[in-house]
Write a protein that binds this DNA or RNA. Structure first.
Lengths: 164, 164
DNA sequence: TATATAAACTCAATGATTGAGATGTTCAAT
DNA sequence: ATTGAACATCTCAATCATTGAGTTTATATA
């Protein structure tokens, strides 16, 4: 029996065929997540940072402009103890990426702001991610892009709800 | 001027409106990735494991059935040093989740197999993820699901290529 | 004024990870 | 056969991020 070496260039391409099931999605999502983390880790190493530091920078970068980023917020978002957050911010501040600013109204809280090339650094950390995303986006129509964005939003909301 | 508090229940819903841009996608993807990691970390903690151990279990779970999982493979996939991989596998083996088996043909290499409740544990680690995914999937048509699967596949391929 | 709660920090202990090197294995060349 | 290079994994001491308990400073409540 000769090898049936089929090359599925672009699965789920046509309108026909079966719809992908949960298991398929799970694998696809896990794979993407793993690739993400690989990139993040690679970037971190390249800049003498730790994965935690990069995650913190992302959290600060993507924070809702209305919501101030505080050590406490990082604690719950990154699942760290307060000691770990302090150490992480010490590293980022010493490296000149962020700056701690005491809140004038409630002097217990500290706000984290970008300093120096922090924002630029955070953005550049996703240059490779952006490149990949762009490449993938180019192969979808506007209509399809809207569909995917809708799915990603739904997933984000669901996962957010799940973790509470 | 009264607050214009619009509530965008489900953005990108209609066929009209502008197509989402790269920046929008970047934020959505980063958000989802962060939520993933939160879930993974939570699960790890719940089972007395480390994030690294969970990532290893995933890697073993999702490995191409044809490709055997070896410490070396984990080393490059999880970006660890060989010492860290050994320690990780020691923990997983001692806990009875995996088993090391020397390859009969090339006695230098070790194959990692599930042992005891390892596979079940790995699967259960994604129960919450599966729940969220299912909920999100339910709100898309078969056609849309195919589109999203196509995007996820493209992203996975692009990221894979990027990290080399 | 006292008391409770809160946010962030300190610091010693823990333990995962690193990095250099050891061990055992395969393969090609001599 | 024997030597030597490449390889996969493991060992182990040192490093360093993280933990966990407790401290400090500030706010809110009675």
């Amino acid at each position: 029996m000769p090898e049936q070496h089929e090359e599925p260039e672009d699965p789920w391409k046509g309108d026909g065929g079966p719809a992908p099931d949960l298991q398929t999605y799970a694998v696809l999502l896990r794979r993407m997540n793993a690739e993400f983390n690989r990139l993040a880790q690679h970037f971190a190493h390249e800049h003498g940072l730790h994965l935690t530091d990069v995650q913190a920078l992302i959290e600060i970068l993507d924070a809702d402009p209305g919501t101030a980023v505080t050590p406490g917020r990082l604690r719950e978002r990154l699942q760290l103890t307060s000691g770990a957050v302090t150490a992480c911010l010490d590293r980022l501040e010493k490296a000149g990426h962020v700056q701690r600013v005491r809140d004038a109204r409630d002097r217990r809280v500290v706000h984290i702001h970008y300093a120096g090339r922090g924002r630029e650094l955070a953005r550049s950390s996703f240059r490779p991610l952006a490149r990949s995303t762009e490449a993938a986006m180019r192969r979808l129509s506007d209509d399809e892009l809207r569909t995917v964005a809708r799915f990603l939003t739904l997933m984000g909301d669901e996962l957010d709800a799940q973790s509470r």
